[in-house]
């Protein structure tokens, strides 16, 4: 039992050292409160400015943003971009940072019929799998990183 636990701890330690820059799934915690103004969230969710490079990685990651599942994006190294959502080329021209933030946080506040999952909202969910219960898909910082990345998509 102890040995198992030790090796598990060692393995976790190894993984986290080996993957310093890899994005991690968020933990269940109190969500940052935000205010919606005119279908947008003007204030950032975190004090740390969003990092577009990290945001790009989150957008690609199938366990996190998985944006390519539905959107074509200027990410040529990834094959098979989805097409159920609009292409995001130039989305940084079309939407403001504040609009992008609400779109990522909870698109249902803009369009209740949207297919897009709410990435930073947990209320009113039905039968969420135990691993994900009470957790948003992205952490507040990951939302800011994705928004920072989307802002760079200019035509």
């Amino acid at each position: 039992m102890d040995r198992k636990l030790l090796s598990a701890v060692a393995a976790v330690g190894f993984v986290s050292v080996a993957a310093v820059s890899a994005p991690q799934a968020p933990k269940a915690e109190e969500l940052v409160a935000y205010t919606v103004v005119d279908y947008a969230i003007p204030e950032p969710l975190t004090g740390e400015p969003g990092d577009p490079e990290r945001g790009r990685a989150v957008a690609i990651n199938r366990q996190l943003g998985n944006c390519l599942s539905c959107h074509a994006m200027p990410i040529p190294e990834q094959p098979f971009h989805g097409e159920t959502g609009p292409a995001l080329h130039g989305v940084g021209d079309r939407l403001s940072e504040a609009q992008l933030r609400l779109q990522v946080v909870n698109s249902h506040e803009i369009n209740p019929m949207s297919m897009m999952p709410p990435f930073y909202a947990v209320e009113g969910r039905h039968r969420v799998a135990e691993n994900f219960e009470g957790k948003p898909i992205l952490s507040a910082q990951q939302v800011e990183d994705v928004v920072a990345y989307l802002k760079t998509l200019k035509e």
Binding site: P117, H126, F132, I137
Partner: peptide, 13 residues
């Protein structure tokens, strides 16, 4: 009925 963390129904897809 939308369900799960991704909040999708059968109809969504």
């Amino acid at each position: 009925q939308r369900r799960g963390q991704l909040d999708m129904a059968c109809a969504t897809c």
